[in-house]
C-alpha cells in the first residue's frame, strides 16, 4: 500500500511542477510523467486493460504535444492574468478545495468496496454471468462490446468528429483557394 501512496504523491508533485515551471517543454514532459505514473497505478489497481491503453495513448499524446511545442520560439510566458481576476479565481478554487475535502472524507475508506459487492447491482450481474452470456473471459471486453456497445458506438462517433475537426482546422488551403483551384 505504501507504493500506491508514493505513486500518488509522485503524480501530485509532477502536476505541481508541470503547472509552475516556466519552460513549456519541461511542462509537457512532466505531464507525460503523470501519465506514466497513472499507467503504473492502473496496473496496481488490477486494471490491466486500462494500463495498456493508457501507456500507448500517453506515448502518442506526448508526440503530439512535443510536436506542438518543440520549435516555437515564444515558449516563455511569465505572469498570470489580471491581478483581480486571478485573486478571485484562486479564492473560489480554495473554497471548492475545502468543500471537496470535506465531501471526499465522507466516502468509504479507500480499499473498501463501494458499489460492486451489493447483490443485485449491475456489476455483480456482469461478473457472475458475463462469461455465460457473451463467451468472453475478459469481462471488460464483454461489457464494452456486448452489454454496453452503445457506449462504444458513441465513442467512435466522438473520435470521428474530433478527427474531422482537427483535419478541418489544420487544412492548409482556405475554402476560397480550394474552390478557385477546382474551377
Amino acid at each position: 500500500m505504501a507504493l500506491f501512496y508514493m505513486l500518488l504523491v509522485f503524480m501530485v508533485i509532477a502536476a505541481i511542477i508541470a503547472v509552475e515551471t516556466k519552460d513549456l517543454l519541461s511542462s509537457v514532459i512532466c505531464v507525460g510523467a503523470i501519465g506514466f505514473g497513472g499507467s503504473l497505478m492502473f496496473l496496481f489497481l488490477r486494471a490491466p486493460d486500462i494500463a495498456i491503453t493508457q501507456i500507448v495513448v500517453e506515448v502518442l499524446g506526448l508526440i503530439i504535444l512535443i510536436r506542438a511545442t518543440i520549435s516555437r520560439d515564444l515558449t516563455f510566458i511569465t505572469g498570470d492574468r489580471e491581478f483581480f481576476g486571478t485573486v478571485v479565481s484562486v479564492v473560489i478554487l480554495f473554497v471548492i478545495l475545502l468543500a471537496g475535502v470535506r465531501i471526499f472524507a465522507t466516502l468509504p475508506e479507500f480499499g473498501a468496496p463501494v458499489f460492486a459487492r451489493l447483490p443485485g447491482t449491475a456489476s455483480q450481474a456482469y461478473i457472475s454471468r458475463g462469461l455465460a452470456d457473451t463467451g468472453a473471459p475478459n469481462l471488460v471486453t464483454s461489457i464494452y462490446l456486448d452489454y454496453r456497445a452503445y457506449d462504444t458506438l458513441g465513442e467512435a462517433t466522438v473520435l470521428f468528429a474530433a478527427v474531422i475537426g482537427a483535419t478541418a482546422i489544420l487544412r492548409s488551403k482556405s475554402r476560397k483557394a480550394l474552390e478557385g483551384s477546382d474551377a
Binding site: D49, V56, V57, L60, A136, T141, S142
Partner: peptide, 21 residues
C-alpha cells in the same frame, strides 16, 4: 486476443497507429 487477454480494439489500434508514427 482482446476477448481473452488484456487489451482490445482501443489499445491495439493505438499500437498500430504508433508503428506508423
Amino acid at each position: 486476443f482482446g476477448h481473452l487477454t488484456p487489451g482490445g480494439g482501443f489499445a491495439g489500434g493505438v499500437i498500430l497507429a504508433s508503428s506508423y508514427v
